[in-house]
Design a protein around this nucleic acid. Structure first.
Lengths: 330, 330
DNA sequence: CTGAAAGCGCTTACAG
DNA sequence: CTGAAAGCGCTTACAG
């Protein structure tokens, strides 16, 4: 009635469970005859090894825990796709747990992984490093993604927001823009913060005028930002939004107001979502799948005993399209 | 040196492991004093229960296996998002395994789940039902998604492609179109097949002219389809593409050829990807996340002992936008 | 080459 | 209310 176990196979093949185990795991020291008898019993019974029991015995699960916050579509699917690609290549399964909301729940999600995975990939912007350390099983190899870590802390991998923002500013300057606006992302968000920071510094370094206005990554906030700039008669010749959604909204808002893009105002975003390509918006391409792949790869090395290493930056790439054409101002 | 176990906690709290287990699982029959001693030992040792061992003992993992083929971004993230939402609501984790390519690998992916999950959600268009039955642990509750099943077979859930295609045709007819083109999806694909089938039937039922031309869900194939229709001087006043990508390409191809949309030719797609909304393309909205949610929910009920039930259809919704405006022909 | 036995870290009747 | 013991389904030294 219930699924066959290794004992059923042993009984049927008339050998011990030890021998079945050896035969199944292709150890050398099993006679061919025995091996065949075991194989036949396995077939007859439709036996499938119980991975859970095997894991307990080996202290090894061949699974990686992946803990992610609520992510927007593109980012989520791309990062998981990358992780999955590398995982299947290296013989691991992915145990997924999304962090909806509250801190306590987030901590629980981490605890629930103990004994089911060999290591964890964690992206938990809502937890501080102290809270993380508290919630993480002590001896479980863990790699942090886009999470604020202290100097010399846990091994981690970060998107290089600063390099991306810098590249955008330098590009805008190179096409002759002199008054740049940055529509920022939401307050607590570390990516948004790094992009805004780097924007300020790059503008200062390049000696161009600049201003940072508030946004929250939503299209509505992009529209609102442009609206209030125009309302108060601000002068600017370039808008760099902290993500593509806001850049798209900005583009529409500008054109609706009769402002020509890129002739009067250049527009750039961040992320390179499919829509950005379709609308010809210049942006910063983040190879998210590669980031996931790299994170998984490093974690598995870690599990295998490699040196932890420190923080690693994942470089994005500037993509120039029609919204920042050299145009009339250039 | 190694992570603390229940025995360490028992030793420290000076009780038996049985008592620790009871205290941890909040059973009634533990004195308050004992309970406190255990809690303190747990805290001091930073003890975290080993979920793997617990599962083996309980014959219950609180995890669901999810086996999906290589999926394009939007669909993948949405269906996993829906599953995850319901899973976290009901206290389950998701064990993910993507099926890249070959059949044998697909079968192995299924086997690897045995003993790690309480049930499986499987979308495996590359396997026949016989191959599936072969590869699936016999007694593991399984729900199939968008997979070809025979009458009265395993419990499953399907996207109702026929209802969607029918709705599009009826809408096109209602705005006065009389010669409809369907750009089909790839040959072996069951969704594509159902959409094309339903298209043919609905056209016949509504007594309008129609033709099905080849496509493969890619934008290029949509462009090519329109190109050859125009080249041979075909006459038509509506194009229904089997997905939004092809609809988008068709829209561009038509307009490049100087054909007005929707005045001369109406255009509709299937899926409702974000780009479709931006370009104002009429389409069929598939609430993918809801499909995932529903699938997970049904599976958990199944695990809990509910009646298997048969195949269930997930209804999509017609979304009318500017590419099928009533327009001049209406 | 093969088997008996201990062990992986839990849970849970069974006694008391 | 609590403990000793068996059991979940595997693996692996240890003997032979």
């Amino acid at each position: 009635m219930t699924e066959a176990t290794i004992r059923d196979v042993a009984r049927r093949a008339q050998v011990s469970v030890a021998t079945v185990s050896r035969a199944l795991n292709r150890l050398e020291n099993v006679s061919e005859q025995t091996r065949n008898r075991v194989a036949e019993a396995v077939r007859e019974l439709g036996y499938i090894p119980h991975a859970g029991a095997r894991s307990l015995s080996l202290a090894r699960t061949n699974a990686i825990g992946v803990v992610l916050p609520d992510l927007h579509g593109e980012f989520f699917s791309e990062i998981v796709r990358g992780m999955d690609r590398e995982a299947s290549r290296r013989g691991y399964l992915l145990l997924l747990s999304n962090l909806h909301g509250r801190k306590q729940q987030a901590a629980n999600a981490l605890l629930a992984m103990r004994g089911r995975v060999d290591g964890m990939l964690v992206m938990a912007p809502q937890l501080s490093e102290a809270e993380l350390s508290e919630a993480l099983p002590a001896r479980l190899p863990t790699l942090l993604i886009n999470t604020r870590t202290q100097e010399g802390g846990r091994p981690s991998i970060h998107l290089d927001n600063r390099a991306g923002a810098r590249a955008v500013v330098e590009h805008l300057v190179s096409i002759g823009r002199k008054r740049l606006i940055h529509i920022a992302g939401p307050d607590g968000n570390i990516d948004a913060q790094e992009r805004a920071d780097a924007f300020r510094r790059a503008c200062a370094a390049n000696k161009v005028g600049y201003e940072v206005v508030a946004g929250d990554f939503s299209e509505d906030s992009g529209t609102a930002a442009i609206g209030s700039l125009i309302a108060r008669g601000a002068e600017f010749d370039a808008v760099f939004a902290a993500n593509d959604n806001m850049a798209i909204a900005a583009l529409h808002a500008l054109r609706s107001a009769g402002i020509r893009v890129p002739e009067q105002v250049a527009v750039a975003g961040f992320d390179d979502i499919p829509l950005a390509r379709h609308l010809g918006i210049s942006t910063v391409r983040v190879r998210i799948a590669e980031l996931g792949e790299r994170a998984l790869g490093r974690l598995i090395d870690l599990i295998a005993g490699a040196e932890p290493g420190g923080d690693e930056l994942h470089a994005p790439e500037l993509v120039v399209r029609s919204t920042t054409d050299r145009g009339s101002t250039g």
